[in-house]
Design a protein around this nucleic acid. Structure first.
Length: 259
DNA sequence: ATGCCGGGTACGACCCGA
């Protein structure tokens, strides 16, 4: 089974691109971030016609996440627990049945956190604390669990072409990285790093010719429970998609699993 | 250089992203 994540930066602007990619790659499950629409505005029929079940957690103008799955959803959960006042649509989780059990797939759009001298940065850190509590609960179930999406975290220097330019940014500063390590240290495996030590960027800014100069960062991740990590066979960053016409600034990242 | 690009909202120019 292949499970992918892709921050598409607006489903309305990226519908045709996503359709093309799905026809080419045919992943089993795709987690989308920044759909930037309410649920009613999501072109679900387009993807149902390609054989996908569609579950969305949308929001007007910003944020918004969705899961497309060839497997039927047994359960769907929307929103990150821990703050009733948080109205931002940044987490959707699906549970799927397999012959040998279940797989739980949690799609996140973690807050960017910039500028760091505004409320956005403490919101990011609090969101990561809430995510850690949520993941603790999930790991207690001892199931194959895949936490994937746009984490807005550059884990290590190797994950940026020019790490010195990012130091101090909300994506790459001590408080953010500490929270990310705390999350990982619950027992999650960074799927990409389980298969390679090489740089593998997933985002290139639209500005300053970042793509042309390969000035990228790795911020889209798949974090795996032990039961999922044991079944991982490959990870692919679809960087060619960044060179397509009217691309997102992020590219798809896909894990292949023996289930 | 806090704008460069690009999407959303809405139709002029902001807000937002990373």
């Amino acid at each position: 089974m292949r499970i992918a994540t892709w921050n598409i930066n607006g489903i309305k602007a990226r519908q045709a691109l996503l359709e093309t990619w799905l026809k080419q790659q045919s992943p089993d499950i795709v987690c989308l971030q920044e759909i930037k629409t309410v649920d009613e505005g999501f072109p679900r029929e387009t993807f149902e016609a390609l054989g996908y079940n569609v579950e969305t957690f949308g929001q007007k103008s910003w944020n918004g996440v969705a899961i497309l799955s060839k497997l039927r959803f047994d359960e769907v959960h929307r929103g990150l627990p821990g703050d009733e006042a948080d109205e931002q649509a940044r987490l959707i989780e699906g549970v799927f049945s397999l012959a040998q059990g279940v797989v739980r797939v949690c799609c996140i759009y973690l807050p960017n956190g910039n500028p760091v001298d505004t409320e956005k940065f403490p919101y990011k850190l609090r969101w990561m604390e809430r995510l850690t509590a949520f993941v603790e609960d999930r790991l207690k179930r001892e199931e194959p669990f895949v936490l994937l999406g746009d984490f807005n975290i550059i884990p290590e220097a190797v994950d940026a072409r020019h790490p010195e330019n990012w130091w101090g940014d909300a994506l790459y500063r001590p408080e953010s990285l500490k929270q990310f390590r705390t999350l990982k240290n619950l027992g999650l495996t960074d799927a990409l790093r389980a298969v390679t030590d090489a740089p593998a960027y997933t985002f290139w800014d639209f500005q300053e010719g970042a793509w042309r100069r390969d000035n990228g960062i790795r911020i889209d991740h798949l974090l795996l429970s032990p039961q999922a990590a044991d079944r991982l066979t490959a990870v692919q960053v679809h960087r060619d998609v960044r060179g397509w016409d009217k691309p997102s600034d992020h590219v798809p990242v896909e894990g292949t699993f023996l289930f």
